[in-house]
């Protein structure tokens, strides 16, 4: 049961990192001067946005490998990561909105990163839709893989277009201004915590998908045995 062992370790690591990150976000890091206490949402928003992109990267890799090798395990990887990805994309939109409201006074703003995240959300949706609307399962997997590949390649272009659209210089996309060392550290720990969590969720979801496949196979066998005349 090597898989279980890995997952247990990941659970422990995630838990510890999360606890550390929470401590740092609420106790250790100083309050930011201009925005006040709300700025701490930043330590939630960046990791969550990072995960939505990381998930899609894994979807991309899984999709390419699936199209190349036709092995179902790559499709399992891609679709599991997509499921986690769309959840975190939704969370990015939610935290982005909860940040926008106190800081800018509006629930939504068409600023580049939020806009790009919204488009990414739709691409994730297209991934699932392409899969579910296909006539058969394996075609669904192929179609989803196509969306995964095109979507991922599109992400940097979307980021570029939305940034330029708002008149902001693309260089300023990731960090605005400097970050105090304590803030940077808190951010790093939060990022690590969420990445560990992502890995755990991914392994868990993959294992479940494999279970579902196994069940289908066993059901097929049971039906067979039943039909070949045993009582």
């Amino acid at each position: 049961m090597g898989k279980s062992y890995l997952r247990n370790i990941l659970s422990a690591v995630s838990f510890l990192l999360m606890a550390a990150s929470l401590y740092m976000v609420f106790v250790y890091v100083p309050t930011e001067a201009t925005m006040g206490i709300v700025q701490r949402i930043f330590y939630l928003m960046v990791p969550v946005a990072w995960l939505s992109l990381l998930s899609f990267l894994i979807v991309f890799i899984g999709s390419i490998l699936y199209l190349r090798k036709k092995q179902s395990r790559w499709d399992v990887l891609a679709r599991s990561s997509a499921e986690i990805g769309i959840i975190f994309t939704t969370l990015t939109l939610i935290t982005g909105s909860l940040w926008a409201r106190p800081v800018w006074g509006v629930w939504w703003t068409w600023e580049p990163r939020l806009t790009a995240t919204l488009v990414l959300w739709f691409i994730y949706l297209a991934y699932f839709l392409a899969r579910s609307l296909a006539a058969e399962e394996h075609r669904g997997a192929t179609f989803a893989a196509v969306v995964g590949i095109l979507g991922f390649v599109d992400v940097p272009i979307i980021g570029l277009a939305t940034t330029l659209w708002r008149g902001i210089h693309p260089g300023a996309l990731i960090f605005q201004g400097g970050l105090a060392p304590s803030m940077l550290l808190t951010l790093m720990v939060s990022l690590a915590a969420f990445t560990a969590l992502y890995s755990l969720l991914l392994l868990q979801r993959i294992s479940m998908k494999n279970d579902e496949i196994e069940i289908k196979r066993l059901l097929g066998l049971t039906a067979e045995r039943h039909n070949t005349g045993d009582r």
């Binding site: 006040g36 206490i37 709300v38 701490r40 935290t95 940040w99 106190p102 868990q204 294992s207 479940m208």
Partner: peptide, 27 residues
């Protein structure tokens, strides 16, 4: 604005934990 901060963290944690629990239970 502490309300927003609390809302954000609670929502994220609730959703993530909810998902984790659902996953483990279904497994």
């Amino acid at each position: 604005n502490a309300g927003y901060l609390l809302a954000a963290f609670t929502l994220v944690w609730a959703l993530v934990f909810g998902y984790v629990i659902v996953l483990f239970a279904r497994e």
